[in-house]
Nucleic acid binder design. Structure first.
Length: 609
RNA sequence: GCGCGUGUAGCUCAAUUGGAUAGAGCAUCGGCCUUCGAAGCCGAGGGUUGGGGGUUCGAGUCCCUCCACGCGUGCCA
């Protein structure tokens, strides 16, 4: 028997439908779902309506025949036909108990994926000389969570931090700093950031761009951006090009200085990433500079295969299904980010051997990834070298908005840095924990300041991450710190709190008996058991759609279900020893699942709070 | 102009990808602490799913058409 309830029911019904319809059972989808309404049983099968129609049978008659024919073993207590042809199924308590015991292993019933190819995830997207801001928040934590999810299924994951560490922007910063004789060894990221902005301001002579954008009726966002860049000193730009040229020639001293900019940036970045509790370190750095010597070859390859052509001095790749071409080389011979991305996609599929490449990049770059993926498949990089088809996926996430529903800015109108955001969340979490610990009844009452700060940090960071991951990724969301760190409602702290209560309950109850038998007499016990059995399904669903909010919603439901159970079913105070052991075991299983689920979301589970 | 996306309760969001009476949480109102952590539990009110057509046993979900907002739109990343 499989630990996935749904799978077991599905297989039984596949055989049932197969025998009634005289069709190969493996082709049949009985569409088994968890029932929304408890009155309709534990699960329902919706397949009879469609299959009846396809085979010229009355769906209700078909459903009844299937119910009569299907051998559910000891799994099902009742299977009834309702409405236009729903099959409502209620499981036997014995089956629920037995599957729950099977889930009670160290992997919690999650079996490794059969696919042994690695997964590459493009995430974070740091730019050298630029401070992390809210925009990086999503690319980082969504990417890290997807990585953890794949790892939970035993997949090897390459977290690819595709640094913006090469090209004209960096050369401009470097040129500017060197020309002002600034000591690169004592530089702070703030200094760098200022230099970056100044360099951007002076070096971009983009009047033509504004005119073109006006003609094209570009959005206000883009226009503002272009106007900001206007101001044009061409000599600054040519000086920067000289620096870039020397860098590309391999000038030792210059490269040495360039490395200092990267080191300075990454020192600060890794401090933030560590606070964020994401598994991204120096080993994940593989930025634009890594691909710098491959770009010419990439363009050559497109030429060789006849997919590239010259147009107005630039090199473009054209696609049959749309007019918009992809530029892979500028008319001045320089390369673009598209070229680097092509080199990266080739590396990831052909050298790393990934059969899934996931790009966690904001939704505004949809068109770019369409082009990129189509170009990659023209070149045959949509298959690994051992012939496995590669899935290229862009996760287009929405923007983080302020209260005014515009991209989040500080009061003065500048970008909100990630550090300031995280610090505020940590402060709020810590304040709450501290104030709660003043209560003599609180388990945190006698804790040291350091311990309380640790918990405050776990809560604050967990709040931000949960708020981000718990809604549909493609949508923009309004950043509301107040709501995120609230301890009631669908928030990270609510789940952490529920988990802390279970932990302390178990601690108080002494040892959990591994051999205890689970007993389901009370409706709330059964409800909790059924919810726990969904874990496998939810994780598979989450990894299939790459939508963390599915896991979030389910975890919230699980903790709600537990709290409800806990309210009506005494655990430690129940008289009957076997019931006590059973409820303790249910609690322990819940705790382990919540901790595991939160860990996939990159959220810590404090024992007290 | 063209392309892409979004629109669900006062607010913030779900809806098992076409399934049964559209569900949660905040907020509001009403109950439950001398009993395992009340950061909790139980209950109530609140909806023309942006509008209008269509497809079918069944549509928030698919198709068409309007509307509103956002984003993108050839040498930035």
């Amino acid at each position: 028997m499989s630990t996935s309830v749904q799978q077991s029911i599905r297989e039984s019904l596949q055989r049932g439908f197969g025998s009634v319809l005289e069709l190969p059972w493996s082709d049949i989808d009985p569409i088994v779902r968890k029932s929304q309404n408890p009155e309709h049983g534990d699960f329902q099968a919706n397949g009879a309506m469609g299959l009846g129609k396809q085979n010229g049978l009355n769906p209700k008659v078909l459903a009844q025949k299937v119910v009569d024919e299907t051998d559910f073993g000891n799994l099902v207590e009742s299977a009834e036909v309702a409405g236009p042809g729903f099959i409502n199924i209620r499981l036997t308590d014995e089956a629920v108990v037995s599957m729950l015991h099977m889930m009670d292993t160290c992997d919690l019933g999650i079996k490794p994926d059969k696919d042994m190819h690695p997964v590459a995830i493009d995430l974070c997207g740091v730019n050298v000389a630029k401070q992390l801001h809210v925009g990086h928040l999503r690319a980082t934590i969504i990417g890290d969570t997807l990585a953890r999810l794949y790892e939970r299924f035993g997949r090897k994951v390459y977290r690819e931090n595709h640094l913006g560490d090469w090209g004209l922007p960096i050369a401009m910063v470097l040129e500017r700093l060197l020309s002002e004789n600034i000591n690169l060894d004592t530089l702070s990221l703030d200094d760098l950031n200022i230099a970056y902005k100044e360099a951007q301001l002076v070096a971009k002579d983009d009047v033509r761009g504004i005119r073109a954008a006006n003609n094209l009726l570009a959005g206000p966002h883009r226009l503002a951006e272009l106007e900001e860049q206007n101001g044009g000193a061409l000599d600054a730009q040519s000086a920067a090009k000289k620096v870039l040229n020397s860098l590309q020639q391999g000038d030792k001293e210059l490269l040495n200085n360039w490395q200092k900019l990267i080191d300075c940036t990454m020192r600060s970045v890794f401090t933030s990433l560590e606070l964020l509790n994401v598994k991204i370190g120096p080993e994940n750095n593989r930025g634009e500079s890594f691909y710098r010597d491959k770009l010419g070859g990439i363009v050559e390859e497109f030429f060789d295969k006849g997919f590239a052509e010259e147009d107005d001095g630039a090199i473009v790749v054209r696609f049959e299904k749309r007019n918009r071409p992809m530029l892979i080389r500028k008319s001045d011979g320089g390369f673009l980010y598209a070229t680097t991305d092509l080199a990266a996609i080739k590396f990831r599929t052909q050298e790393l051997g990934a059969d899934r490449v996931v790009y966690v990049v904001d939704a505004r770059q949809r068109d770019h990834f369409k082009d990129l993926f189509d170009a990659a498949s023209l070149m045959g990089w949509d298959k690994t070298t051992d012939g496995c088809p590669v899935e290229l996926v862009h996760i287009p996430f929405g923007s983080v908005l302020g209260e005014d529903k515009k991209p989040l800015k500080t009061r003065s109108g500048s970008n909100v840095t990630l550090d300031s955001l995280l610090q505020e969340a940590v402060d709020r979490g810590t304040t709450e924990v501290m104030s709660r610990s003043k209560n003599p009844k609180s388990p945190t009452h006698n804790m040291s300041k350091e311990e309380l700060e640790t918990i405050g940090r776990q809560i604050g960071i967990g709040a931000i991450k949960y708020a981000d991951l718990s809604n549909d990724l493609v949508r923009d969301y309004v950043f509301d710190m107040e709501r995120m760190v609230a301890f009631d409602g669908n928030t990270g702290p609510y789940i952490q709190y529920a988990c802390a209560r279970i932990t302390s309950l178990i601690k108080k109850g002494g040892v959990v008996d591994d051999d205890a038998i689970i007993i389901l007499h009370e409706p709330k016990e059964r409800e909790l058991a059924l919810q726990l059995l969904q874990y496998n399904n939810v994780l598979q669903d989450t990894v299939k759609h790459l939508e963390p909010h599915r896991l979030c919603t389910w975890l919230f439901e699980l903790t709600e279900t537990f709290n409800s159970f806990y309210q009506s079913c005494p655990v430690l105070k129940v008289e009957c020893e076997t019931v006590r052991a059973s409820r303790l075991k249910l609690s322990e299983l819940t705790r382990r699942v919540v901790v595991d689920g939160l860990d996939i979301l990159g959220i810590e589970s404090p024992n007290q709070m």
